[in-house]
Design a binder for these strands. Structure first.
Length: 297
DNA sequence: TAGGCGTGGTG
DNA sequence: TCACCAAGCCT
């Protein structure tokens, strides 16, 4: 365990910057529930803050506790999820609510291993809930922290491919000992990555740690490592077709007929593949009366 | 472990 | 315009 100058100066500076520059967001309001934090983290997985906020507020108004959501049919969760994307998250959040109700007396657990055991909760979400909802000292690693550490500490324009153990260790190395500072550093380094040390065009002139940044010190060298695998084009993809079918199922409150599904996309083979995929994922169900519905309609 | 999984904003 | 990007997770 080495304590370099950067290992203390960077966290202190980021915490101070966060106190001055952190955004006011629902999940940062005093008294925001652990359940609210869990819901927000599900919604924030791969979805920008601005799109999440209205859905989060509506969700918590309708289902203020895990037991409230657990008592609702999954179909209603999928409708409320609306067009946030990746609807399997809504299914997993519903399943997690059932698990919390059955296994934890309706209280969102604070233990990382218990959180990890919930549907749809991985390394990031488990530690985010433990750290932000319960104030526990855990390193929280997401795409923002990985990018800030890659630049400020490792002197590289982009992070190496994710490595759970290495990434957690790198964050632990910076994490302040005090509970409050640890929480604010976790939040602050994410905020810095979201607002200043952004992926495409970092605003280094506005960065509070530019003096300590290893990447700037090295002359901001271009990234030479392997390119991240490119996301396949969405237009014309199975994902697009799945999305179109889900949109039909959300809008209907009775079974959607095969003929109606035929109208959403011209390629029959692709339509069939998408529909079968949705059924395999539990997002769609073949109705006994014929046609298809959301699960447990 | 690499690839699949929605949707929309942006430089 | 169109790749890239967005508080990941699961298999």
């Amino acid at each position: 365990m080495t304590t370099t100058a950067a290992a203390t100066a960077i966290p202190e500076t980021i915490v101070a910057w966060f106190h001055e520059n952190g955004r006011t967001l629902p999940w940062r309001e005093p008294g925001f529930s652990a359940w609210g934090t869990l819901v927000s983290e599900f919604m924030l997985q791969q979805t920008p803050v601005n799109r999440v906020i209205p859905h989060l507020n509506a969700w918590l108004e309708r289902w203020p506790t895990p037991a409230d959501l657990a008592a609702a049919p999954p179909a209603e969760a999928l409708r409320a999820w609306s067009s946030l994307g990746y609807p399997r998250r809504a299914l997993w959040l519903h399943a997690a609510a059932v698990e919390i109700t059955e296994r934890h007396g309706g209280v969102v657990p604070s233990d990382v291993d218990q959180l990890l055991a919930l549907s749809g909760v991985g390394d990031y979400t488990a530690r985010a809930v433990a750290a932000f909802a319960y104030g526990l000292r855990h390193p929280v690693v997401d795409t923002n922290t990985r990018r800030v550490i890659a630049r400020a500490v490792q002197g590289q324009a982009e992070p190496a491919p994710p490595s759970r153990a290495r990434d957690l260790a790198a964050m632990e190395e910076l994490l302040p000992e005090g509970l409050v500072d640890a929480r604010d550093f976790n939040a602050g380094i994410m905020e810095l990555g979201a607002l200043v040390c952004v992926a495409r065009t970092p605003r280094c002139g506005d960065c509070p740690i530019r003096e300590q940044c290893a990447w700037i010190a090295a002359g901001s060298p271009a990234y030479l490592g392997p390119r991240k695998s490119v996301q396949k084009k969405f237009e014309g993809s199975d994902r697009q077709v799945r999305g179109l079918i889900m949109k039909e199922l959300r809008a209907a409150h009775k079974p959607v007929t095969a003929a109606e599904i035929d109208t959403v996309w011209p390629d029959a083979a692709q339509r069939e593949r998408a529909l079968r995929g949705l059924i395999a994922d539990g997002l769609a169900v073949a109705s006994a009366e014929g046609g298809y519905t959301l699960p447990h309609e």
